[in-house]
Amino acid sequence: MDNIYRPYLMNISDMVDEAPGVKTFRLNFSNEDEGKKFQFQAGQFALYSVFGYGECTFCIASSPTRKEYIECTFRQAGRVTNALRELNIGDTLGFRGPYGNVFPIEEWEGKNLVFIAGGIALPPLRCVIWNCLDLRDKFKDVTIIYGAKTVADLVYKHELKEWDARDDVNLVTTVDPGGETPDWTGKVGFVPTVVEQAEPSSSNTIAIVCGPPIMIKFTLPVLEKLGFKQDKVYTTLENRMKCGLGKCGRCNIGCTYVCKEGPVFTAEEISKMPDEF
C-alpha cells in the first residue's frame, strides 16, 4: 500500500525574485520516470516541503501545457516558506500532489475570459492564464485585471510586460492608493473599483477571480452588477491544510472540504456555503 504522505523529490532548476519576500521556483523531478508519469490540471495545488522544516500548501503556478517542469510562487511568511527561501538552485525539496479539483477550461472554449487577481493570488491564476494563452485560438477576448498593494508587490513583472505587449490580451494593472511610483502608468485603486471601471462585458464571458478573502468579498457583487451569472464566475479558495487529502480536518467550509471538493468553486457554489471563510 502506498504511503499517501510520501512526497516526490524535486530539484530547483531556476528561481526568480518576484517581489519583496516573493519568489518563484522552477522544479524538476529528481526521478525522471516520476516526472514523465506526472500529470496535473490547472487549478490544482500541492504540498511543498523543506526537509527539516515541514510542509506548506500552495498552488501549482505553471501551466500543464508546459510539461517539463513545475513552478511555484510563494511569499516568505512562516517557518517553511522562510526555509524555502533559503534554498538554492540544485537543492532538493518535497512535492506532494497534485490535489484538488480543476478549472473546467474545456467548457470555456469559445467564450471571453476575464481574470481578476489581487496580490499574491496571481500565481493560481497564472497557471490558468498560460494554459488558456497556450490554447489561445480556442477562446475569444482575454482580459486580465491585476492589482497589488504597491508597484513593487506586483508579481511576474516580466510576464505582465509580455501580456501587455500582446494584441490578444487586454491587461489592466492597478495598485492600491499610495502604492504607485512616479513612473507608474497603470491604474490606482482597489481591485473591485477597477473592475467596475473596466466594465468587462458579461455576455458570453467567464470570470475567474482570486485574491485575499476581502477582495473576493467586494469583487463578487461588482461582477453581479455587471451582469455575470454566479455560475459563470470561478474562484479558487485557500484554507489552511495539512494533508491535502480530506483527512486532517481543518480546511472545511461547512460540509465542503476545500482540499477535495475544491479549491476551485463557482460563485454559485460559494453562495450556498455557510459564512465561514
Binding site: F51, G52, G54, C248, G249
Partner: peptide, 22 residues
Amino acid sequence: CHCFDIVDECTMTKGDRVKNWD
C-alpha cells in the same frame, strides 16, 4: 476526533515527518 497536524522533527542530517494529533 481524527484531526492531525504534520510536522518535521530533525537534526542537521536526518529527520522524521510526523503526524500529530491536532
